[in-house]
Every structure is written in C-alpha cells, then in structure tokens.
Design a binder for these strands. Sequence first.
DNA 1: CAGGTGTCTAATGTCGACATTCGACGAATG
DNA 2: CATTCGTCGAATGTCGACATTAGACACCTG
Lengths: 220, 220
Amino acid sequence: MIVKKTYKDQVIDHIYQLILTDELQPGDQVKESLLAVQMGISRAPIREALKELMTIGLVEYRPQIGNFIPILTPKQIIDSYTTRGVLEGYAVMIAGEMFSAEDLAQLDRYVDEMGTAARAGQHKEVVDIGGDFHDFLAAHTDNLQLLEYTNRLSLKLHVLFYKHWGLLYKPDEIEQRHRAIVDSIRSRDKAGIEQVIRAHYVETGTKIATVQAARSETAA
Amino acid sequence: MIVKKTYKDQVIDHIYQLILTDELQPGDQVKESLLAVQMGISRAPIREALKELMTIGLVEYRPQIGNFIPILTPKQIIDSYTTRGVLEGYAVMIAGEMFSAEDLAQLDRYVDEMGTAARAGQHKEVVDIGGDFHDFLAAHTDNLQLLEYTNRLSLKLHVLFYKHWGLLYKPDEIEQRHRAIVDSIRSRDKAGIEQVIRAHYVETGTKIATVQAARSETAA
DNA sequence: CAGGTGTCTAATGTCGACATTCGACGAATG
DNA sequence: CATTCGTCGAATGTCGACATTAGACACCTG
C-alpha cells in the first residue's frame, strides 16, 4: 500500500470524508485554523490542500473571507453534468475505433453487473460500477487535456452527489441506458455515440438536480 | 483603475510577464525563494500564486521538486486547442438562438477589423481582436461550468503561445475562417456551428504545434 | 426609531525560520 | 571501468507568530 507522504494529501482525504459524511455541508466555511487544530498540524498544509480542492471545484474561494463548500443551484448541477457529457462524448467518439472486442465485452460486463446490483438494491455497488464504467470510457482517449478536465468534473460530482445517487434510478432503466451507450460504440456510429453520452449526462444531471432541490426544500 | 490588493495577484501578473518576455521558458523551474527575493516578499504569496497558475495549467507541479513551465509536445498543443474547440463549439451551438442581430453585426465588425489589421501586418492587433472575438462567442453561454473551463484553456494557450500567433496566418485566410464561423451562427445550423468551430481550433492548434516544433528544432 | 459610526473578534494574508527531501557529485568498492 | 553508496547543497514542506481585513454588534446621533 502506498503511504501518503505529505500532510497536504492527508488533509485532502480528510476533507473528502467530512463532505461525504455531511460534517461539511454546502454553504459551510472550511476554517483553516479549526482543521489545523483538529488534525494537529499547522495551517500551511491545510491551505495547500484547499487550493487543490479549489482546482477541482470542491471548495469555493472568496478572497479575504475564506473557503466554502459550494451551494450548487439545480441549473449549475445540470450544467456540470452537461459539461462532463460534452467532454466524455467527444472523447469516446474520437476513441471510437480504439475499443476492441475485449473492451466491448468488458463494458457489457459492467452493464450486466450494474443491472444485477440494481435489482438487488445494492445502491453502493451500482454507483461504484457506474463510476468504473464511465472512467473506463474516458480513459480510452489519448487526449490528456480532455481527460484532465473529465476527471476533475467526475471527482467533483462524485463527492458532492454520491449520497443522492442511490435514490434516483430504476433498476431496468439504468441498465438499459448504459447498454445503449455500449451499443452505440459497437455500432461505430460516431455522431450517435456523442449524442447518447450527452443525453445520458443531461438526464443524470437533471435527476440529481431534482433530488437535491427536493432535499433543500424539506430541509427549509 | 482597480488596484491589486494582495501580493498573490501581483505575483501572478509578474509571472505572466516573465513568461511573455521569455524570461521564463518552457522547462524552466519557477523557484519560490528566488521570486520572493526579487519581489521583496516572502515565499507564502508566491506559493499561493503558483497554486492558482497550476489550476490554469500555466505551471506544472512535481511534488517535492518544484513548479515548472510546461513543455508541451505538438500533440499536447493540438489536444489543448481541440478541447477548447469542443467546449466553445458546444457553448456556441447551445447559445445559437441567443445571438441577436446586433451580436452578429458585432461579430462581423470583429472579422472586418481582423482582416484589415492582418493585411496591414499589425500582428498584435490581429491576435487581440481574435481573442475578443472568441471571448465574445464563449461569453454567450449561460453554462458557467463550461465557461470556466473555456476561460482557463483560453488563458493558458494565450500566455504560452501569444508570441507564435503573428507568424502563422495568411491575412485573407484568417478573415475567411472567422467569417465562416459567423455565417454558421447566422444560418442557425446547430450541427454546422459546432463543426466549424471545432475545425477552426484543430487547425489553429495544428499550426501552432508546427511552428513550435520548428522553433525547438532550430534551438537544438 | 432609523441610519451611520466605532470597536471588537475571528478569520485570512503574510512573514521568517526550521525540517525534510530530491538530485548531483564524487569517493569507495568489486 | 562500472556500480554502489554516502555526503552535500538547494529546493520544497511545514511551522508558529504577527499583520490585516471582513462582518457583527453595540453605541452614538439625528
């Protein structure tokens, strides 16, 4: 196992956990001094970590005021998913011929597992396999610039909305939607690939936005 | 005029200048202590600035070693331009109907000025107007996530390749290429808009990559 | 009572010093 | 001669303290 060397990396992991466990909620300020005391280190590595999280979009920086967990409006959520769809759609379209028969078989396996887990009500597995599926897709591009942005968005959306994903899919639907992506790749229909992936993310984003809006409604 | 309040912002501007004037060249390490002494401040704001430049991609960070001005291979240059084309292409396509008659007239004016400046050999003006043209396009999206990435790429490519842009266009060609973009928007042909803009950036990236490759050839 | 003002607090911004680590150089070894 | 290992310098990583600023609250003023 790889040991984290610098405090900065530990801080990043720690903040991930705080967000995933709702100890840090959207709108909360991430106070450097407080974290420093809690972790028994100085503020310097905390600031380093916050800058990195800023790059991804997991914290929002306001000069002279501090770092905050972003409150995303429904539109912003949809926009972020849409952007990911645009990037992944292009990446997969360009990589179209790069997907070998084995790759397609692997994708089919992902979809099978996803469907099985979904019907068994194993939400966490469904989300994890879905993540693997899309990472597998994006990783087939040789455009590293595009991959960098795709990964940043993927990570941001994953951390911020992981807890909602279990609520919003219907087992058969999620399997069918991902199967459609694999089929479009198999058909080598470039324009089709791009459209299917874009549509997938727009729909996912719309659902997440709805769920999230409903939550803040009940919370208020 | 707005005065820069924090040292960090001054450092960022300073590094921009160092890159534009070739005092910092691709491959060079940006040494914190050196900059701190030169600017008469401590290393803390230098580090802040470097983290922000990292976000844009203007410096490359290697843990425990330092920050370096990236050396981009021809492929990476093309990939970065391509990615910008994908993002801007989608942004403009979606914003298609948002462009009013006045907007289109403004775009035409940009293209006219660009052609005039190009034929007069005023390279700097051509580049600046081109920048305004594309910023005007991108700014018409209401997808802020997409705009954020577009702006980051725009800034990175601008700073790193500003000095090459004067060498690579033919006056009539540059006018014609941008006119094609305006025409495609005017025609309200969504798919056409996206394709024209993507093609524009792929071609621009390819040219820049060629020029840059030729330069490092003669330098070696 | 409303509006502006001053003060106070808690957070970020910056500093200089020390700790740690990477990479280069050169000596010891087979 | 090639290889390994230890040392050293210079750079980043981290620290604790101080400077500065945004925002809240009480106070003054009309």
